[in-house]
Design a protein around this nucleic acid. Structure first.
Lengths: 204, 204
DNA sequence: AATTAGTTTGACCAAATGGTCAGGAAGACG
DNA sequence: CGTCTTCCTGACCATTTGGTCAAACTAATT
């Protein structure tokens, strides 16, 4: 983590540029489907120059993913055990849906990685992700036991939030094809629909 | 369609073998991440022999996808406008969940394709898929208008069935990492959870 | 201005990859 | 059995790809 901060301003700028370009390319074609040339071109740098800042294609991918993992967990971290259960869960769902809307590339990068068996981040999944999920699922189960929200499987409740919200980023092409829309109009409808869905689900 | 049936028994067998091998490989690494050598090895054939049965790597992929599209739409086709609304929708959801359990590779192949912008099947998405979806969404909306099930956005209701069920196949690694399970125990829990979810959602 | 440290690139390399082809092996069939 | 068609393969090819390197260029620093 520490050594990742480039020292000079030029290093900082170029590393950022490369990571941004890599996100664009990797999220579109997956790891094995992306080439260094594509990334270099997208970044406006030469290929050897890209490899001057990162030791390999894989290193770029790995750094991108580990940065992403934190971003991905943040909204869940914010779910407060002392808040109002229904409010907390709905707010978490809305934050995730916003992330799908605002960071679809990140969502697709993550989805690509998981789809292919998560070769680069299986450790984080079984570690950080599992731990945090277990912790928050326990909180939700607590709320259920106290009769504050309807009983259901807390882990699968979290899964359903993930899948329902990320679907709009990961399967955007399909959603747009079916709805016949080009832009982001679907997110307004999605929020209304998901709001209603989880409100009903959590009501006793 | 017609010319795809190999004439001789040996053709039939080998084409099937190749498609099965390709499914295994493509679903794991995506189109660009898979190689003809991998497919050939998986099929137990030589690379030139694979290319004797299919003109190119892309042709294998395309055929796989178009066969898949039908399989994928079938469960939705079965949803009957004259049946009991809640039963029909729940049964459709269960069929989709079973498909995730029994055909995860097919699900992942499809997900891979959509994730990358559906370059090979965008036409089918905007055609067959959209038409069928619109048709069934209209049926569901009709049920809602008649007060047989709770009102909500019918298109997004279908999206939610797709995302919730396919999640267990496409993100299997993640689900298993979080639940700490190796096999398919999650599908039992998933069915219970999703059953309850949609029952609540559809109840007036 | 001179020296040094940091940055950039064209040319290059080895390996992998999609695909071809001539000819050999194996079935089908009279 | 002989002929004809279908099936299969080793060797080969052009291109792409991740990655290297020496040399050139630029920015700091003294």
């Amino acid at each position: 983590m520490a050594k990742q901060q480039g020292r000079t301003r030029i290093q900082k700028k170029n590393r950022t540029t490369i990571l941004e370009a890599a996100l664009e390319v990797f999220s579109k074609f997956g790891f094995r489907g992306s080439t260094l040339d594509q990334i270099a071109k997208q970044a406006g740098l030469s290929k050897p120059n890209v490899l001057y800042y990162f030791p390999s294609k894989e290193a770029i991918h790995t750094e991108l993913l580990s940065c992403l993992m934190e971003t991905w967990l943040d909204p869940l971290l914010d779910m407060d055990a002392n808040g109002d259960p229904k409010t907390e869960i709905l707010a978490y769902m809305r934050r995730k849906l916003q992330m799908s809307r605002d960071f679809p590339r990140e969502s697709r990068l993550f989805a690509n990685e998981i789809l292919q068996g998560a070769p680069h981040i299986l450790g984080e999944l079984k570690g950080e992700l599992k731990d945090l999920t277990d912790e928050k699922a326990a909180i939700i189960s607590g709320w259920m036991d106290q009769g504050l929200i309807a009983k259901s499987n807390a882990h699968h409740l979290l899964f359903s939030i993930w899948s329902l919200t990320q679907h709009y980023a990961d399967f955007e092409v399909q959603v747009c094809a079916v709805l016949g829309c080009g832009g982001q109009e679907q997110y307004q409808q999605a929020e209304e629909y998901l709001d209603a869905l989880f409100t009903k689900l959590l009501s006793i």
